Amino acid sequence: MTEYKLVVVGAGGVGKSALTIQLIQNHFVDEYDPTIEDSYRKQVVIDGETCLLDILDTAGQEEYSAMRDQYMRTGEGFLCVFAINNTKSFEDIHHYREQIKRVKDSEDVPMVLVGNKCDLPSRTVDTKQAQDLARSYGIPFIETSAKTRQGVDDAFYTLVREIRKHKEKMSKDGKKKKKKSKTKCVIM
């Protein structure tokens, strides 16, 4: 069974824990209790493949930012979460993405942009803004509501699919490099 290491990042209060708990335990946590770091595991079937999701729910508070490099190193894919009623959390996505790329030393890291709290009427981040940002990053965008469960499975499952595509691409690139290195030079 394939294991996928997913990391949920975003500013404090955007609903990272609520999304994760909704996926794992099928219930909505409405009281806000700032996370330092929590880890969850769940076995699911995605596109006919049974897999184990190892999900790291991270601290959004700035005082825990020193811990970010460590979990970013171990993560295979990242859910970059903002709240649709919090423009600052949307603007912060850029910083999370840049930090992930720096730590992973790669421009090509599996990510999904997630606009959470889409059940709320007080939207300050337009869907088109988020779609445009995701398009500019070359990553999928999904709106979710941890409260109603809308888009929750889709967000995590899409990230797994992005990781699969990335692994497939990397193995193809690896095979191309191996083929090239088999060419021999004969000096007579």
Results as ranks from 00 to 15, higher is better:
22 Q>I: 01
21 I>C: 13
49 E>A: 09
21 I>W: 15
60 G>C: 15
36 I>G: 01
29 V>E: 06
25 Q>T: 13
42 K>H: 06
29 V>T: 08
2 T>E: 14
30 D>V: 07
5 K>I: 01
17 S>W: 00
19 L>S: 15
27 H>I: 11
63 E>H: 06
21 I>D: 10
57 D>I: 01
54 D>A: 02
37 E>F: 06
59 A>C: 15
25 Q>D: 06
53 L>D: 00
50 T>N: 11
57 D>C: 02
64 Y>C: 10
44 V>P: 08
56 L>F: 11
22 Q>C: 04
24 I>T: 10
15 G>M: 00
55 I>T: 15
61 Q>A: 05
18 A>G: 12
40 Y>C: 05
11 A>H: 06
12 G>N: 07
50 T>S: 10
47 D>P: 04
4 Y>R: 15
23 L>E: 15
27 H>T: 11
52 L>H: 09
20 T>C: 06
9 V>C: 06
7 V>T: 06
42 K>D: 05
37 E>T: 04
29 V>Q: 08
2 T>M: 08
30 D>R: 08
51 C>P: 08
23 L>T: 14
39 S>N: 13
31 E>R: 09
26 N>E: 12
2 T>W: 05
8 V>D: 01
7 V>G: 04
27 H>G: 13
10 G>P: 01
54 D>F: 00
63 E>I: 02
12 G>L: 02
52 L>T: 12
23 L>M: 14
32 Y>C: 10
3 E>D: 13
38 D>C: 03
64 Y>K: 13
22 Q>D: 15
3 E>P: 14
43 Q>W: 06
46 I>N: 08
46 I>M: 08
36 I>V: 10
47 D>H: 05
2 T>C: 10
2 T>Q: 11
62 E>S: 10
31 E>C: 13
18 A>S: 14
49 E>Y: 05
42 K>L: 06
22 Q>E: 11
21 I>F: 15
32 Y>M: 11
50 T>A: 12
34 P>K: 13
29 V>I: 12
14 V>C: 12
4 Y>D: 05
58 T>Y: 08
35 T>P: 06
5 K>F: 00
32 Y>H: 07
56 L>G: 13
46 I>K: 07
31 E>P: 09
17 S>G: 03
39 S>L: 04
46 I>C: 09
18 A>E: 01
45 V>I: 08
60 G>K: 15
59 A>K: 03
29 V>W: 07
5 K>A: 02
14 V>H: 06
52 L>N: 07
25 Q>E: 05
27 H>S: 12
51 C>A: 09
15 G>P: 00
30 D>M: 09
9 V>T: 05
20 T>G: 10
38 D>Y: 04
48 G>Q: 10
27 H>V: 11
37 E>S: 06
56 L>M: 14
11 A>E: 14
64 Y>M: 11
2 T>F: 08
19 L>F: 14
27 H>L: 14
9 V>F: 13
58 T>Q: 05
3 E>A: 12
57 D>F: 00
46 I>E: 10
36 I>K: 02
2 T>D: 13
53 L>S: 07
57 D>V: 04
48 G>N: 07
8 V>H: 01
19 L>A: 13
9 V>L: 15
26 N>H: 10
28 F>G: 02
25 Q>A: 09
9 V>E: 03
6 L>C: 07
20 T>I: 05
4 Y>I: 13
24 I>C: 10
13 G>E: 05
53 L>R: 01
24 I>E: 03
5 K>M: 02
21 I>Y: 15
39 S>Q: 06
31 E>Y: 09
23 L>W: 10
18 A>N: 15
8 V>Q: 02
41 R>V: 02
53 L>W: 06
22 Q>V: 02
51 C>G: 07
53 L>M: 08
5 K>P: 12
48 G>S: 07
13 G>Q: 10
51 C>M: 11
17 S>T: 04
27 H>E: 11
